[in-house]
């Protein structure tokens, strides 16, 4: 195998030095077998520029901290292999989220805010009895919940969403998926009407204009399009019968 010489154009920006405009810096390195962007970035930091900032924790598509734009596409850097990349690759941080520097963004604040606004907890008036045996859940329902819970909150669906890019309050596919998770959960006693007041509006599911970049880019393959449609249909029926319920 002939070793390729790879070029990476990486965005450099330090919010503490606002006088320096964001710019792309070029790095070169030799490709190795099985190389992922995790390896690339760490190598660059170790061997070429110790100030380079980026985030990795699990390097196995689990923690969701390494979302970035790889040649424009929002994806996880740790699961991107250099063998799938062209000779020149541009790396940018995810938009929408607060930029901490270079490729590092803070997805936490955004997701926390979204969790609050979608009231992401089981709403119930049953008092919890720690001694009682756990209530059984139907397997199919449990799997449906699990499907939504597979979201690792990397923010790729948000960064790739045109609406989220211009509307700061839009909860995006991650938010709608979260709501869907509680909608199928039988322990959550919220009525359709209560859900409607949270997501039956422009900041919620009706703000989606159907570009489906979220669905196309989700690195862990959560069926976002189905989740969006599911919540949309539920909310439409709630909106339709709003006066009566």
């Amino acid at each position: 195998m002939i070793e390729r010489e790879l070029t990476f154009r990486i965005m450099r920006y330090n919010p503490d030095e606002p006088e320096k405009k964001p710019h792309l810096q070029e790095f070169h390195l030799t490709e190795e077998p099985g190389m992922s962007l995790f390896v690339v970035l760490n190598k660059l930091r170790e061997e070429q520029d110790p100030t380079l900032r980026f985030d990795f924790v699990c390097r196995a598509s689990i923690c969701g901290s390494c979302g970035m734009l790889v040649n424009g596409r929002p994806t996880l850097a740790c699961k991107t292999l250099t063998k799938d990349l062209p000779d020149v690759t541009t790396l940018l941080p995810l938009p929408v989220f607060k930029l901490l520097g270079d490729l590092s963004v803070d997805t936490g604040v955004w997701f926390r805010d979204m969790s609050f606004r979608t009231e992401s907890w089981v709403h119930t008036d049953e008092t919890f009895d720690p001694d009682a045996p756990e209530k059984r859940m139907d397997n199919a329902v449990a799997l449906e919940i699990y499907e939504a819970e597979r979201c690792i909150e990397c923010g790729c669906c948000i960064g790739g969403c045109a609406t989220a890019n211009i509307k700061p309050d839009f909860i995006g596919a991650a938010g709608v998926n979260r709501v869907a998770r509680f909608m199928v959960d039988p322990r959550d006693k919220r009525t359709e009407r209560e859900y409607f007041e949270v997501v039956g509006n422009e900041d919620g599911v009706f703000g989606c204009i159907g570009l489906m970049a979220c669905d196309d880019n989700c690195p862990v393959g959560v069926p976002l399009r189905d989740q969006l449609a599911y919540v949309r249909r539920k909310m439409a029926s709630a909106g339709w019968r709003y006066q009566k319920v």
């Binding site: 940018l92 045109a162 204009i209």
Partner: peptide, 29 residues
């Protein structure tokens, strides 16, 4: 009309965004 970004800054963002992410359905919008 409510879907169409009305402010110049927003227009700039969406066009830049479309160019950046190479996504056909975003262009078609």
């Amino acid at each position: 009309i409510r879907r169409i970004p009305s402010r110049w800054a927003e227009q700039k963002i969406v066009w830049k965004h479309a160019k950046l992410i190479h996504h056909a359905d975003t262009w078609s919008w």
